[in-house]
Amino acid sequence: MMDFTSISDRGLVLLGCGKMGGAMLKGWLAKGLAPMSVSVVDPNPAPWLADTGVSVNGALPSDPAVIVVAVKPQMMAEAMPGQTGYGGGRTLFVSIAAGTRIATFEKMLGEGTPIVRAMPNTPAAIGRGITAIVGNAVASEAQVSLAEQLLAAVGQTVRLESEDQMDAVTAVSGSGPAYVFHLIETLAAAGEAEGLPAELALELARTTVAGAGALAMEAEEDPGQLRVNVTSPNGTTAAALEVLMDETRGFPALLKEAVHRAAERGRELGRQ
Results as ranks from 00 to 15, higher is better:
M2V: 10
I7L: 15
S8M: 07
R10V: 01
L12Y: 11
L15H: 00
K26I: 03
L29D: 01
P35K: 11
V40L: 01
A46P: 00
L49V: 05
G58M: 12
M75S: 13
M76D: 11
M80Y: 03
I96L: 11
A98N: 03
I102W: 02
A103W: 00
T104L: 02
K107Y: 00
I115F: 08
V116P: 03
T122K: 10
T131W: 10
V134T: 13
E141I: 11
E141P: 02
Q143D: 08
Q143V: 07
V144N: 08
A152K: 13
E161N: 14
S162T: 14
M166P: 06
T170F: 07
A171C: 06
S173R: 10
G176A: 05
P177F: 03
E185W: 01
E185A: 09
E192K: 09
L200T: 12
A205H: 01
R206G: 00
A212I: 03
L215Y: 03
A219F: 08
D222K: 12
P223R: 01
G224I: 00
N229T: 00
T231Q: 12
P233D: 11
T236M: 13
L241S: 11
E242F: 02
L244V: 09
F251E: 03
K256R: 15
V259N: 06
H260L: 12
R261E: 14
